[in-house]
Design a protein around this nucleic acid. Structure first.
Lengths: 222, 222
DNA sequence: GTCTATAATGAGATAGAC
DNA sequence: GTCTATCTCATTATAGAC
């Protein structure tokens, strides 16, 4: 009521801190960004920074909250099944885009757990949720005759897909020295995931991913 | 000549430092182990520690040298092909055992690169070497009719296998909160790798891994 | 080679005025 | 809410005696 809606509402300091931190942390690891640098980036004083977050850890917790909301959205997106093939090939890249926006969580998880141990159980819970969603999606696709795999194979697929996607950004850096990831490299990651599922896709499933079926190695529908 | 071979030759301080560090670093990350703690573990003074390694970074470099030798041995082991099936099922666990011995390198790579940036190119070179070896092994198995895969599929397999194996230990910790890894969990990792190759194995190849062939999804020999 | 000092650093964090 | 000034504190690292 007190706020003048006519004037450009300058985002409050708390939000500006979080936005600046996401950028800084994506550039270099949270452990390499000092509170002094954060304050400088936001254009405020270090003392002021500590008024809003009196532990560096709290900044990471707040950022994780934002990340978590985004992740749950993406995870849920695929559940609203439609027959639109574009959905099937597109949602993987949605997943990877989110990973890109919050790449420091993937890239620097070890450092982050050190700075904010409280995130450890949260990440675990989020992983549980994510893998559950993937399991449901795969279950649905199996029922729809797009996928042919035993329960055990699905278990293994989920774990492998999870690992490859989660560590993809770190892999690019440690193996290929990639500092600034391109869209192309994200697509490469997505194609690695597709390659995991490919041997288990039926003809109909392959079509969904726009893959030319190979009659010799095609998974047979039940 | 001066050394009395009759008395138990106490290992020199440098070696004791390295041995102690490997243990300490495996327990908790190198970033969490201070030079004071290292000295205490070895039973020497901190000043003495700095006589042997005047940067903490140098300790990590020396340890990496040891690790590298071990890795190259394991990588080469599978090249000496034999028809002994035990070799095929056993060498993966040899690989994972080495990863276990030097698990801090896998678990804390981000922290380690921070402490010892000089290791970054070395790790990259080692990865190159490792993936080359895997490529040769897979090529040989394809020629031997154990594996059926296109060149592109082999490329993707190598990358996926590399990522899953490299990050397996970190995955166990971040996803399942595993601090002390059991032999069983290492075997689980190895079985995840096997599951990557399984769809591409021929009947003969499956036998090598002691896997019961499933006639429906069997890869056909060329 | 090994020790006892002690310096040098640089981060996170706080008190209290405005 | 924002600032200035200051504190605390853990670490790495060095100088020099033994």
């Amino acid at each position: 009521m007190h706020q003048d809606l006519g004037s450009a509402p300058r985002p409050n300091t708390r939000m500006r801190i979080l936005a600046a931190c996401r950028e800084l942390f994506n550039e270099r690891s949270p452990a390499d960004v000092t509170t002094a640098q954060i304050a400088a980036a936001v254009g405020i004083n270090e003392g002021n920074l500590y008024y809003h977050f009196n532990r560096k850890e709290q900044i990471l917790e707040a950022l994780f909250g934002e990340f978590e909301r985004g992740l749950r959205e993406v995870a849920a997106a695929d559940l609203t099944q439609s027959d639109d093939p574009a959905r099937y090939s597109g949602y993987l890249s949605g997943w990877f885009s989110l990973m890109w926006e919050w790449r420091f969580f993937y890239r620097d998880s070890a450092l982050i757990f050190r700075l904010a141990p409280s995130l450890r159980p949260k990440v675990q819970a989020l992983s549980d949720h994510g893998q559950e969603q993937i399991r449901r999606v795969l279950g649905n696709r199996r029922k729809a005759g797009l996928l042919r795999a035993t329960d055990e194979e699905i278990d293994q697929l989920i774990v492998n897909a999870w690992i490859v996607s989660t560590y993809w950004i770190d892999y690019l850096r440690s193996r290929h020295g990639v500092a600034d990831i391109t869209r192309e490299q994200l697509n490469w990651g997505a194609s690695q995931i597709v390659s995991l599922f490919r041997p288990y896709l039926t003809a109909a499933g392959l079509e969904m991913f726009d893959i030319k079926p190979d009659p010799d190695t095609l998974a047979q529908p039940d």
